[in-house]
C-alpha cells in the first residue's frame, strides 16, 4: 500500500514535466509564478503560525494540555479515540494554523506514525476549518442566519473523526 502511495508525487511531477515539454503555452513561467505564490503563502501564514505555535507550546509546557487530555480521556476511551488526538479535534473547526500547531505538538510528543498521529493526520487531511468557511461564505451573500449549516458541518466533522479512527484501525 505504501508503495502505491509513494507513486503519487513522482507521477504528478513527471506528468507536469511532460506537459512542460509538449504544451505550446509558456508553462515554465507559470511554474515559476506558482512557486513564488507558494513562497508568498508560506510567508503569509508565518506570523499566525509563530503566535499559535508559541501558544500551543505554552499550553503543553504549562501542563494545561495534559490536564485537558486527562479530563477528556474517560470520554475518549468510551468512544475509542486516543486522548492525544483531542486537542487537534478541538482546534480543527476553529483555526487552520491552530490545528497545524496542535498537530505539530502531537507529532513531537507521540510521533507521526503512532496511532494518534495517524488518526490526527487522516482527520486533518479530510476536514477543514468550519467556523471560518461558513462565516465567510454566508457573510459574503449578506445572510445573517445560516440555517442548519453549522450543526450539519459539526456532525460531518464528528463523522469524519470516527471514520478516521476506524480506517486507521484497519490500515
Amino acid at each position: 500500500m505504501t508503495d502505491i502511495a509513494a507513486y503519487a508525487l513522482p507521477v504528478i511531477i513527471t506528468l507536469s514535466g511532460i506537459m512542460l515539454a509538449f504544451s505550446k503555452k509558456d508553462l515554465f513561467s507559470l511554474f515559476l509564478s506558482g512557486c513564488s505564490d507558494g513562497l508568498k503563502t508560506t510567508a503569509g501564514i508565518l506570523p499566525t503560525l509563530i503566535m499559535l505555535v508559541v501558544a500551543v507550546k505554552m499550553l503543553s509546557a504549562s501542563g494545561a494540555l495534559e490536564a485537558i487530555c486527562s479530563v477528556l480521556s474517560p470520554l475518549c476511551v468510551k468512544i475509542g479515540i486516543p486522548e492525544e488526538v483531542l486537542p487537534v479535534v478541538l482546534m480543527r473547526p476553529v483555526s487552520g494554523s491552530g490545528a497545524t500547531a496542535m498537530i505539530k505538538e502531537l507529532f513531537d510528543n507521540s510521533g507521526p506514525d503512532s496511532a494518534a498521529g495517524r488518526i490526527a493526520s487522516v482527520l486533518m487531511g479530510s476536514s477543514d476549518t468550519i467556523i471560518y468557511t461558513l462565516s465567510l461564505y454566508f457573510s459574503h451573500v449578506g445572510a445573517k442566519k445560516t440555517g442548519y449549516a453549522l450543526p450539519a458541518a459539526f456532525i460531518l466533522m464528528i463523522f469524519c473523526l470516527f471514520v478516521s479512527c476506524f480506517i486507521c484501525s484497519i490500515f
Partner: peptide, 9 residues
C-alpha cells in the same frame, strides 16, 4: 513552492 508551481502548470 514546488507544489504550487506544479499545480499552476
Amino acid at each position: 513552492c514546488l507544489w504550487s508551481g506544479v499545480i499552476k502548470v
